[in-house]
Design a protein around this nucleic acid. Structure first.
Lengths: 295, 295
DNA sequence: GAAAAGCTGTATCAGAAATTTCAGAACATG
DNA sequence: CATGTTCTGAAATTTCTGATACAGCTTTTC
């Protein structure tokens, strides 16, 4: 049960609740595929998923009841009731000492690449939010909530995906939304239609892409309003942009992180959806209806 | 828990869950003697005393099993299992809410929609990382680092953008990478080439998309390895997936947040890039060179 | 490519748990 | 003090859950 030789700290393990969840995480790769399903379900709704009946648990995990039984047996329990009893006791202990559930900075254990990467990203998100002027954000929301405007999303090599993501949501919330590919050949002819009523929302982070810049400059020259989501060093598009929302992007990776941009995007989607709710709601319902008919 | 009659504040009771414990306290004097014993036991070890069996509960309360049954019936439950289910749900709700409001206070300054949205997303990221098994993550990294494998990314209406994002990075780090559109018409013919050497990385969150599921099932049937990034409720693709990485997605919005999925994606990109560094570096340099020449 | 090993679901069973029945005890009431 | 009412628990009953055996299938290994 207790893995030996895992930690060599001089300090004795003071309150070391080898949480079952933790053990499962560690042994995960020794599990069979269906055991992994069970483990995932349990971890994602820990520990309540385990307090139901075997049948319920099996069904929710998409496996059979015997597989669930094998899972708990492998964890070292004499049977399912034993397993549940353990969960209850662990839960009770945890609930009685509010200290235990604090876990803000994660106990030192398992500082995987994933967790440190996540911490860096979280730091980026915090920094991003702090440096956004609420007024600027609100202004963009207002702009994107104007139904008479035509919204065009665009982005570069990597950030184009974010533009697509934004477009796929806004397309449902409101009309007059599209995505423009960055390559000049693909938008040159479209430009004749771009004018004062149009809004370009551009995603562009370092190794700023010239074609995206060109697109925005052309659009701006024709009177379009440009909104830019970029990094703190500001894409050259900032020169022609009406509104700029910078996001922190540095991560322990060879690549930059777009999480901050995604955060801003989703926050914009949420805010605009809320503001346009009267008209967005029927649109969303209609989309839902179409989806169901199709299937 | 919530003491009744304690607060006479003018502000309306904001979140006033009529806890079962509270109801019991109010109705206490209407109980028969043995019911009172049951009530006292339950309240003194709320709610865990109620999660054991009827026999156990009866014994601990010093009464008989039928009396326990009469007690729960009087409380309005259809039977003991109903009663337990209620307790579990109440407990879960209570335990999850402190997580949701993890750090609500923050610095007092402008609690904009943006900051609260950001806090929710950050909570999602933390929860996501905590529920990912390092071994599972590592296994996926190893899989994606195998140069002999062919990697195909795909996703649904909204998550497709994440697939594209992943593809645009992996394409540079290694060869044999592509993106498959979700619509069956677009991949049907490609499927003949999918086999044991292929890896499908699918993004799919709730309102799971049938065409993506179909794609994965077909690919799996032909021997391809399926990796799934989904929500904690697991897309049906989980049934055929070798590896599953769930991410928390609930945000204060009408839409789900994909930030957790993006985090996992970027972490995978970072890890694979690092592992394949020997071959990835020259590739990245070559791409850089091509970019410069073009301009 | 064949044999072995391992994994998983169906069908089935045993047993435990919840529920009901019913008779006796406690209590109040006239 | 008798009687009706209410309450309670032992035992019988039923429901349901956890456990097992087995066969099909996949994956691995030689």
């Amino acid at each position: 049960m207790n893995q030996s030789g895992m930690r060599r700290d001089p300090r004795p393990p003071p309150t070391d609740p080898p949480s079952l969840a933790e053990r499962i995480r560690l042994e995960m790769d020794a599990f069979t595929p269906s055991e992994k399903r069970a483990a995932h379900l349990l971890l994602s709704h820990y520990p309540f998923a385990g307090l139901d009946t075997v049948a319920e648990f099996a069904s929710r995990a998409g496996i059979s009841a015997p597989s669930v039984l094998r899972f708990v047996t492998r964890l070292g329990f004499g049977g399912f009731p034993d397993f549940q009893k353990h969960l209850r006791e662990e839960l009770e202990a945890q609930l009685l000492s509010p200290l235990a559930k604090a876990s803000p900075s994660d106990k030192g254990h398992g500082a995987t690449a994933l967790t440190s990467f996540a911490e860096a990203v979280i730091g980026n998100l915090r920094a991003t939010v702090e440096n956004i002027a609420p007024a600027e954000f609100e202004a963009v929301v207002t702009l994107l909530s104007d139904p008479r405007r035509h919204i065009h999303f665009t982005g570069g090599r990597f950030t184009g995906a974010l533009g697509r993501y934004a477009e796929s949501h806004f397309r449902i919330v409101r009309s007059n939304v599209d995505f423009i590919e960055g390559q000049p050949a693909l938008w040159r002819d479209r430009m004749i239609e771009i004018g004062k009523k149009d809004v370009i929302v551009a995603f562009d982070i370092r190794r700023y892409q010239e074609d995206v810049t060109a697109l925005c400059e052309t659009a701006a020259k024709q009177g379009a309003t440009v909104v830019l989501l970029t990094d703190p060093w500001l894409s050259p598009i900032a020169r022609v942009a009406r509104h700029v929302l910078p996001a922190h992007i540095v991560a322990p990776s060879n690549w930059d992180s777009s999480a901050g941009l995604l955060l801003l995007t989703e926050a914009l989607v949420a805010a605009v959806t809320k503001r346009l709710w009267e008209t967005a709601k029927p649109r969303m319902e209609a989309v839902e209806r179409l989806r169901n008919e199709k299937s």
